[in-house]
Design a protein around this nucleic acid. Structure first.
Ligand SMILES: [Mn+2]
Ligand SMILES: [Mn+2]
Ligand SMILES: [Zn+2]
Ligand SMILES: [Zn+2]
Lengths: 156, 156
DNA sequence: TCTTTTTTGAAAATGATTTTCATTTTCATT
DNA sequence: AATGAAAATGAAAATCATTTTCAAAAAAGA
């Protein structure tokens, strides 16, 4: 990520202001944290990571900012069944980093996978088209998760 | 549902006892409630419905039973983003009542759809096979949801 | 019936998220 | 640079779905 010095990616300023929001330090850092990891962070995870660079951050602001980022569409919010929401940077279905999840019901491990996505994307496109027409439903997003046991959890 | 008189489907007794659990009145009624609706009930929804036939029911028991039913695999637990878990009778991917969901982010409406499932199922099967092998992950279930705006919510 | 194990319900506890509210920051205008 | 309105922030309190505790009731077995 070339744009250091705490400025965050420049085009994001526009994204925020365009929606009538201000690009503030807490928001930048929170976004930086989410941009800098492939993990699926909880609000408190984010809070702790941000705290390093910006000790005065409040957990409330983290929650508010995450909600905002989800609303703007910059991040995704997930429920993997462990009682807290988890977030990751949004990568549209065109991006080569777009992925779906395997969720281990044994240990809670989350595995990102991008394999087989091509076919999935194609089917998804077709399905979304059909559903949009039949139910007059404007689809903006999809969620696909597989549940099961990871290698570790299978062997006892 | 032919087996009334509060007995519940007979084969369920076996299902319960086979797992070392007892088929009690609260459990039967809770299962009956979920069998008798296509809605996506919250724990409290279930509690209220059960209360008619069994006024002494406790909310705690509802939570415990729902958890048990999910564990046994008789019902599914969903998070549609409204802050409470919702449940529905499990219909395996073979069943003709198996379906996926459209979730309206505007009003929270949930639409069941079975259309286009055939192709989805086929792809899912292939995908699951591939993922199982590559990640050595034993897949037992999947979740597919589409988010967007329902007809009502689109027109302002 | 007697005994053991499971289930149940009320009340209290938990804990993630939201709300409140006074203070601080931002940003467009003087 | 100073000003003022609007937006953003953080600490503390409130919410509220879900879980835990614990003593009493129900079920299975001998
Ligand atoms: Mn991911
Ligand atoms: Mn459904
Ligand atoms: Zn695992
Ligand atoms: Zn709607």
């Amino acid at each position: 990520m070339p744009w250091r010095d705490g400025a965050g990616a420049p085009w994001l300023h526009g994204k925020f202001k365009g929606c009538g929001y201000r690009m503030t330090m807490p928001r930048q850092i929170i976004l930086d944290v989410l941009s800098g990891t492939a993990d699926h962070l909880s609000a408190e995870d984010v809070y702790h990571k941000v705290h390093n660079a910006y000790p005065s951050i409040g957990l409330t602001t983290v929650y508010r900012t995450l909600e905002l980022l989800v609303h703007i569409g910059l991040i995704y919010k997930f429920d993997f069944g462990d009682g807290r929401s988890r977030y990751e940077l949004a990568e549209g279905s065109k991006s080569d980093r777009h992925h779906h999840h395997l969720v281990c019901t044994g240990c809670g491990r989350i595995i990102d996978y991008t394999d087989f996505i091509d076919e999935e994307i194609e089917l998804l496109k077709k399905t979304e088209k059909g559903l949009s027409e039949k139910y007059n439903f404007k689809i903006t997003n999809h969620l696909i998760q597989f549940y099961g046991l990871c290698d570790r959890c299978q062997n006892k």
